[in-house]
Amino acid sequence: MSVRASGGLLGPLNPARGAGWQDPPPRKGFFTDTSLCIGCKACEVACKEWNRIPEDGLAMLGTSYDNTGGLGASTWRHVAFIEQRKPMRMLPVANGMGDSPASGAASDVINPARGAADFRWLMSSDVCKHCTHAACLDVCPTGALMRTELGTVVVQEDICNGCGYCVPACPFGVIERREGDRTVHNAGVAQKCTLCYDRIGEGMTPACAQACPTESIQFGDLEELRERARERVGTLRAAGVSDARLYLDDQKDGIGGGGAFFLLLDEPEVYGLPPDPVVSTRELPAMWRTAAVAGLGLLAGAAAAFAGRRR
């Protein structure tokens, strides 16, 4: 197959079709609305329980209530906790409260000892983004990583040989090779969220979204989720939550939009997310060209070394 323009390697914005699935069903995804997250970590546990993921360390990290740290081979949902001295404007549109003198006030912490210190505690459940242009999937040399007909990205644990290439490829630091001896389930194999491929294939909801008490994690058809998310951002902004923004909802971004996307209340890097992630495949054709030039240059150089007088 020829290497055409980068679009050729990236594939279309309907990734399931691009992966050879005929008439794929609507793409499935997650919308994680962090403005609704109460940091209960039900998602972390429900995910581990369903997917039989081993315990991931018993160290206290001293990072607010986060003792998980981040996504990895044995953590497919991770709740971040961020404590900030920043005003939190969180009053939703005041239905039926509009005529009340009590409405319209911003959230605040009343503390005369510290002055009217505005403080907020952000929580956000992170997960694999199931990128439209997925670097892990692109670099996988075995086909262990697969785009499903639902548009999600899964690791086929029976195929993966643990080459580890997907790990540095992921612009979000999501996928990881599980370490441990052979008694550890799937040791040596790359692991990440499957968007509960087994469950959603049967019309069930992924374990995390099913458990989430406050609907911070919403599962569904991606198109519909995007619409819902835009509406939610509008509602929040109208209510004065100017920090509300969507992350990875835009198909024009560096990964073609996420199959899992987020409503955040601060910059992505505050949550440990890259502000402008780009799938490296986008530049791969150019890299191949450079490598070809370099390789030919080497060949030419080698030939040149034999040119001239014999010595």
């Binding site: 109460i38 940091g39 209960c40 969180m90 006030a105 959230s107 912490v109 009343i110 505690w121």
Partner: peptide, 14 residues
Amino acid sequence: RFTRTSAVADMHVP
């Protein structure tokens, strides 16, 4: 204390 409840409340009064 400012708890997970306070985090999503409109107002926290310590």
